[in-house]
Each structure stands twice: as structure tokens, then as C-alpha cells.
Design a binder for these strands. Structure first.
Length: 581
DNA sequence: GCCGTTTTCGGCCCGACTGTTTTCAGTCG
């Protein structure tokens, strides 16, 4: 029982949840028109805490909470209250004053706190439903400060939000699912347990989380699961299946089967549906049939202990879950041509790391130590250039100062190295945001688009292609600019960009930040087919952010990448040699 | 609300763009 208590404690004190509460306070304060610096204090603290690699509860116990940058007396008191009691009275009072549905309204692109406030106070709008109605009646366009275009933008924004409703990013799902899987797997009646569904395939966003377990006593296991910590509602519960909704709104489904059904069930529930359809068609041709309970030959059940055995029965080599998308993996498996997918342990170093010199929350030294502790041999530091003013981008002078710090840090280690880099803005005209002299002193340059997202496809593609011809640019960063569930990428002809990258001998980034996962796996595979080296980079803004690399590795695997396709499986010298062509 | 001191309160990241205005507020990155 004490194990359960610990788990509960851990669940409540999760840094993500503390951050979410602070973020909510910040947004609600923004809506009531509080001092914007106070608002920012909550928001930056939320961001910092989310990025900590130590648990807040632990920091409290050690009396070190106020050592966290941006957490003073006031915030510390509120955080301690939240961790100790699971509640923050200040937040609950705010929620009484401000309709909570307005936070959804504020998530619409181009609808910030000021506009939301006007909608609320002038039209009495308290949620998305009300806003939808007011737009339909033309009431929003008539408001002072709004107009036809503003109203149309809001409608577009609402449609975007609605089309992604009920979906979650991997980082919103995996950490929670890990705890739940652990909880289920350690039940004494459970023989085997695993993730299933799109989460097991590491799809970039998922609708729900699926867990499969085998047991001789399913009802016991299901009862245990329904009582897991963090469960808000039990949506459905039967003898073999239980669906629950967590406090975050995420739905988690548990299926429990007999152990001799486990392999077929795991295959079935992992999907994708399209992959399974192909498998079943293949089975049929071989006189077999596959369903979620097993493999049948006529009326006889064939004993299968693992997914591997099922693939073998079908004359296929084992297809890793990340590849099960009906993108040619069956044919490849038939011919024994499946790639040996890259793994986390193949990575030797990482490119694309930020620090407090711009918009990161940790010092270069801390980021480096963390990177080193993860077993990497080098860290490609790449803070922002000056055009990224919102991020505190560096001009040439500050960059030079930063490089001096890197030099002095590098004398610390013999087995580790910080590479000097920059995430340099690709300006609207396709030029880079720093002088050639400044760029020339760097080991590598990532070029990224951070402005003028509204260009036509032709203009944006020209812009990026021009930058690829710049000899100082080595890696194209987050090539589409998408933010998952928040914003589509800018319009760009990726095929032309990839062709140009190949022609210029440039590398493409697979940005591992779970908000981005940019490029997506389809284009990652295309880049690989073109022979373009791919840098799997964490785009880390905190020490915690360095762990996002696993999302990138998963996406790389979804894009069929082997170790040799990935730039940072090479030693620092070899990787830099590739970048220099 | 935090921070850094000039120990008691003032400053806190900013430039571009958009749609609305008729000189600018709001949003974004």
C-alpha cells in the first residue's frame, strides 16, 4: 500500500502539473488585466519549473525551491501549498472570478488576453461555444477594435482548434502512461504488459493511450487499474476492458487478455489499422487468419508467444512498431530489407541546444554537464541570433563573448566537448542574420525561419532555398515551423527544399522537441531516400529538454532511419566534416 | 511577482506586422 501512496505523491507533485497551475494563474491574471510583469513572472516560472530535471517536491524538502530562477517568496509559498495539499487557493479564487472557458478562447491563434477580455466584457462570451455563436451573428466584427478580418481569423482559429480537439502531444501522454504502465505491470496477477496503439508507434500526436496486459485474473487487474491515481472518471468498465479519463482529459484504455492471446492482441491493438489489414490479407493468402485473440489455421489455433513469431509465421521479419504504417514495410520485411533502425544508444552527441544567453533556462555549463551525463561526447550549442529579439537573440558582439565562455568551459573535460554554433535566423530575403565574419568563427550554423510565416509557398521556398546556398549554413532547422496542435507549418515546397539541400550538401534537422517533431516522419524518410544527413536535435531550452531526444529518435525510426543516416551518430570531428562537405 | 541592489523600489526583452485605426493596440515569435 505504501508503494501506492508514493506513486500518488509523485503524481500530484509532477513538475508538469505545478507548471500547468502556474501557467493557468498567469493566463487568468492576464485576463483580468493584471500587471503584465506579474503575469510574466508566473509564466516564466511555469516554464522554468517544467524544464527542471529535479522534482519540485524534492527541492521543497531540501529547502531549495527559492534557488530556482524566477521563484521568490510569493511563488514558493503557492507552490508549496499546491504540492502539500494538491490545491492552490489563489488559483481557485481566480477561477471563481474568471470563466474558465476563456482559457480555451485564449488558445485560439491571434486571440490574446486583451481581445479575449473584450469579448468577455462586451459580449458576455465565456467559452468557445459562445464565441462561435457571436461570430455567426456578426457581433464580433461590430466590436470596437475588431472587424470583418478579425472575425474571420477567429473563425479559422476555432476551426483549427476544433479539428485537433481531443488529441495530445506525445510529451503529454508518454510520462503519464509510463507511470500507469508501471502500476499495471507490477500488479501480482499481471504476466506481461505493454503500451499499444498509436503511442507505441510513437505517432506525433495521439487521441488516447492504450495499455495491454495479460493475466489469468483480468477482473482483479481491471479493478486495480480503475483505482489508479490521477483517474478522474471511469468511462467504462467490463470484464476485459476499462476506459478511464485522467485529470488532464486524456483517455487511457486498458485491455486485459489471457497470456496465450497476448501476442496477437498486442499486434492487433498496436496497429496501424492499415498495417493490420495488409497483414491479415497476407495471412489469408497463406491459409491463415489473424484476429485480436490469435492466429488460426482453419479451426486450429496456432500457438504464438510473441509478435516476432506471428511475423515469422507470415514469412516476414519483425516489423518494429514505429514502422507499422503501411508505407512499404511489409514488402521490405518480406524481402528481408527492413532497415536496422537507429537507437538512442547510437547517438554520440547532439546539436541544437540553448542556454541562458538567449531563451534557455539553464547556463551553458549546466546544459553541458547534463548532456555529458546522458553519455554524449559533445553538445552543439546554438543560441539565437539577433533577429530573434523575443528570445533575447545575440548580436555579433555577444556571440563573441559567449564563445569565450565556451572556450573556458571546454578546458574542463577531456572526454566531452561543446561545439560552437548558432541557431541563426533565415531573414525574409533568404540571407542569414549575422555577418559572415561572425559566422566564420563557428563550428556549425543551424538556419531557421522564425519570422514572416505568412509568405506564399513560392516566396518561402525561395527564401529557404537561397539560405541553403549560403556557405555558412550547415543545417536547416525545424524545416516547416509547425507547432503540433497549435499551429500549422508555413507553406513550403518541401520536395524542392530537400532537393536543394541535397544539391548543396546540407543537413536537415529532425527537431526532437515534442511540440514540433519537425520534419515529420514521411519527409524524414524522403530525406533519407535522397541521402541527406539528418541531425536529430533536442532544441533543448532546459536541462529537462535534453531528454526530448527520445521523441526525435522515435520519429527518426518512423522515418526508417538507420544509424548511418543520422548526422549525430558520428563523432564530433566526423560530424563536422560532413557539415563542411 | 522577481530581482538586484544604488537595502526599498524601479525596472522587468523587443521589433515586425496586422487590422484597425487616422496614430496605435494587440499579437506573435
Amino acid at each position: 500500500m505504501s508503494g501506492g501512496r508514493n506513486r500518488r505523491a509523485f503524481f500530484i507533485m509532477d513538475n508538469t502539473q505545478v507548471a500547468a497551475a502556474l501557467e493557468a494563474v498567469g493566463n487568468l491574471l492576464d485576463l483580468v488585466g493584471e500587471n503584465s510583469f506579474k503575469v510574466r513572472a508566473y509564466q516564466t516560472a511555469a516554464r522554468t519549473i517544467e524544464g527542471l530535471d529535479r522534482n519540485v517536491a524534492l527541492l521543497i524538502r531540501e529547502g531549495k525551491l527559492q534557488e530556482v530562477q524566477g521563484v521568490g517568496e510569493g511563488l514558493a509559498r503557492k507552490i508549496e501549498e499546491l504540492v502539500a495539499t494538491g490545491r492552490m487557493i489563489y488559483l481557485e479564487d481566480l477561477k471563481k472570478k474568471v470563466p474558465i472557458g476563456l482559457l480555451d478562447v485564449m488558445r485560439i491563434p491571434f486571440c490574446g488576453p486583451k481581445k479575449t477580455r473584450v469579448l468577455w466584457q462586451e459580449l458576455g462570451i465565456v467559452d468557445l461555444e459562445g464565441l462561435k455563436r457571436a461570430c455567426a451573428e456578426g457581433k464580433v466584427a461590430a466590436l470596437k477594435g475588431f472587424g470583418d478580418k478579425s472575425q474571420a481569423k477567429l473563425v479559422d482559429g476555432m476551426n483549427f482548434v476544433a479539428s485537433h480537439a481531443g488529441r495530445f502531444r506525445l510529451d503529454q501522454v508518454i510520462p503519464v502512461a509510463r507511470i500507469l504502465l508501471d502500476y499495471v505491470a507490477h500488479h501480482h496477477d499481471v504476466a506481461r504488459a505493454s503500451y499499444a496503439g498509436s503511442m507505441r508507434r510513437w505517432k506525433d500526436t495521439v487521441g488516447d493511450a492504450d495499455i495491454l496486459a495479460s493475466s489469468s485474473d483480468p477482473e482483479h487487474v481491471i479493478d486495480h487499474f480503475s483505482k489508479a491515481n490521477g483517474v478522474r472518471t471511469v468511462l467504462g468498465m467490463g470484464p476485459t476492458k476499462c476506459s478511464v479519463q485522467l485529470d488532464s482529459g486524456l483517455q487511457v484504455d486498458l485491455r486485459v487478455v489471457k497470456d496465450d492471446e497476448y501476442a496477437a492482441a498486442l499486434l492487433y491493438f498496436t496497429g496501424s489499422k492499415e498495417h493490420n489489414v495488409l497483414l491479415r490479407a497476407r495471412a489469408q493468402k497463406m491459409g491463415l487468419s489473424i484476429n485480436e485473440y490469435g492466429v488460426l489455421k482453419g479451426d486450429d489455433r496456432i500457438k504464438v508467444a510473441s509478435e516476432e513469431e506471428i511475423y515469422k509465421l507470415l514469412g516476414l521479419s519483425y516489423v518494429p512498431p514505429e514502422m507499422r504504417e503501411a508505407r512499404g514495410e511489409i514488402e521490405a520485411a518480406e524481402q528481408g530489407q527492413l532497415p536496422q533502425l537507429v537507437e538512442r544508444k547510437d547517438l554520440v552527441g547532439v546539436f541544437h541546444v540553448h542556454s541562458t544567453w538567449t531563451d534557455g533556462t539553464a547556463a551553458i555549463a549546466d546544459m553541458a554537464e547534463k548532456t555529458r551525463s546522458q553519455g554524449f561526447k559533445y553538445m552543439g550549442l546554438s543560441d539565437h541570433s539577433k533577429a530573434a529579439a523575443y528570445a533575447g537573440g545575440m548580436n555579433e558582439e555577444r556571440l563573441s563573448q559567449q564563445l569565450k565562455e565556451v572556450d573556458s568551459l571546454n578546458s574542463r573535460w577531456t572526454d566531452f566537448r561543446i561545439l560552437k554554433g548558432l541557431e541563426c535566423d533565415i531573414l525574409p530575403d533568404g540571407n542569414l542574420d549575422m555577418t559572415p565574419e561572425s559566422l566564420a568563427q563557428l563550428d556549425f550554423v543551424i538556419g531557421s525561419v522564425h519570422s514572416r510565416f505568412d509568405m506564399s509557398e513560392q516566396e518561402m521556398t525561395d527564401r529557404v532555398c537561397k539560405s541553403l546556398n549560403n556557405k555558412y549554413l550547415h543545417v536547416l532547422g525545424h524545416p516547416t515551423g509547425r507547432l503540433l496542435l497549435h499551429r500549422d507549418g508555413y507553406k513550403i515546397d518541401l520536395e524542392r527544399v530537400l532537393q536543394e539541400a541535397r544539391r548543396c550538401g546540407k543537413s536537415i534537422e529532425l527537431n526532437a522537441n515534442p511540440n514540433r517533431l519537425d520534419l515529420d516522419s514521411v519527409h524524414v524518410k524522403r530525406a533519407r531516400d535522397l541521402g541527406i544527413p539528418i541531425s536529430v536535435g533536442p532544441d533543448a531550452h532546459s536541462t529537462q529538454g535534453l531528454e526530448d531526444i527520445e521523441y526525435g529518435v522515435a520519429t527518426a525510426r518512423r522515418g526508417w532511419l538507420t544509424a548511418k543516416d543520422v548526422l549525430n551518430t558520428r563523432t564530433a570531428d566526423d560530424a563536422l566534416a560532413v557539415l563542411r562537405g
